[in-house]
Design a protein around this nucleic acid. Structure first.
Length: 264
DNA sequence: ATGGCTGGTAGAACCAGA
């Protein structure tokens, strides 16, 4: 018997400000598991009722006031939830749990890293590189079949940005970030499902700035959000789309949802 | 090739995102 699962990653940029389009998304796409980043809410104030009404009764939260915050919201029971502090400063940027089939889901919000791509001039950039370092150590020792997804805040390939040359020195597309990302990938043999199913050099973006007059017309996007899987799960991911239309829904997030279909 | 935008929280000539 084949177990089909639809798993989503979405940087929501405030789950409370965005609750109407989150409900629309759940009604229209009916995922099994929704992983949110940038929920921007304390756990006590998380709008759990909206999710429970739609049949999503299993929530694991890691929130804080104002910034950051992640959540896994599921129709299926979640077990062994955990929260790693890969930032080493208490910020809420990770939550993980195990699905009934034994597969782990790790939902991460990697720091943006500020404006300047230099750890001396900009401590936030150093924090971002160190975050990758801690995730690399974790990846090296990882044994369980795992889905690692979220907002990685790096667009590694030329086809992951609207203009490769223009962005070479822009944080999210610098070589040192890409080196750190790939070192983490190689530490576990992570498979990039986005590029396995939508191969390079096809255009593939997940984020478009709010500042563009018409985000679709200018299309100055970047692929900042990713779905990676352990090597043994590579063939279980059978479909992957970025729901770009959601970038145009009322009061949108600046990120679109990534929908991955698995057959276990 | 940045930023003209956005949210949270405070009550900002704010901070953060990327």
């Amino acid at each position: 018997m084949t177990d089909s699962l639809k798993i989503v990653s979405w940087n929501i940029n405030s789950v409370r400000a965005r609750i109407d389009i989150v409900e629309r998304f759940l009604r229209e796409e009916a995922p099994d598991v929704l992983c949110l980043q940038e929920t921007k809410v304390r756990n006590e104030q998380f709008p759990e009722g909206a999710f429970r009404q739609l049949g999503y009764n299993h929530l694991v939260l890691n929130g804080q006031p104002m910034h950051h915050g992640v959540a896994i919201i599921s129709r299926l029971p979640l077990h062994k939830d955990e929260r790693f502090d890969w930032q080493a400063n208490g910020e809420a940027r990770h939550v993980g749990a195990v699905l009934p089939n034994g597969v782990r889901i790790e939902n991460v919000y990697i720091p943006a890293g500020g404006e300047i791509a230099d750890r001396e001039a900009n401590p936030k950039f150093g924090q971002k590189l160190d975050f990758f370092g801690r995730m690399t150590e974790w990846s090296e020792s990882l044994k369980e079949p795992t889905i690692l997804l979220g907002d990685f805040n790096v667009a590694p390939l030329a086809a992951d940005v609207w203009n490769h040359k223009a962005l070479l020195k822009v944080v999210s597309h610098t070589q040192i970030e890409i080196d750190h990302l790939y070192k983490m990938r190689d530490a576990h043999g992570w498979v990039d499902i986005g590029r396995k199913l939508i191969p390079d050099p096809e255009r593939l973006f997940t984020w478009w700035s709010y500042r563009a007059k018409d985000w679709r017309a200018s299309d100055k996007g970047r692929r900042l959000d990713h779905v990676w899987v352990s090597p043994e799960l590579e063939d279980k991911a059978v479909g992957h789309i970025v729901l770009e239309d959601a970038r145009s829904w009322g009061k949108p997030s600046d990120h679109a949802p990534l929908i991955t279909e698995f057959k276990f």
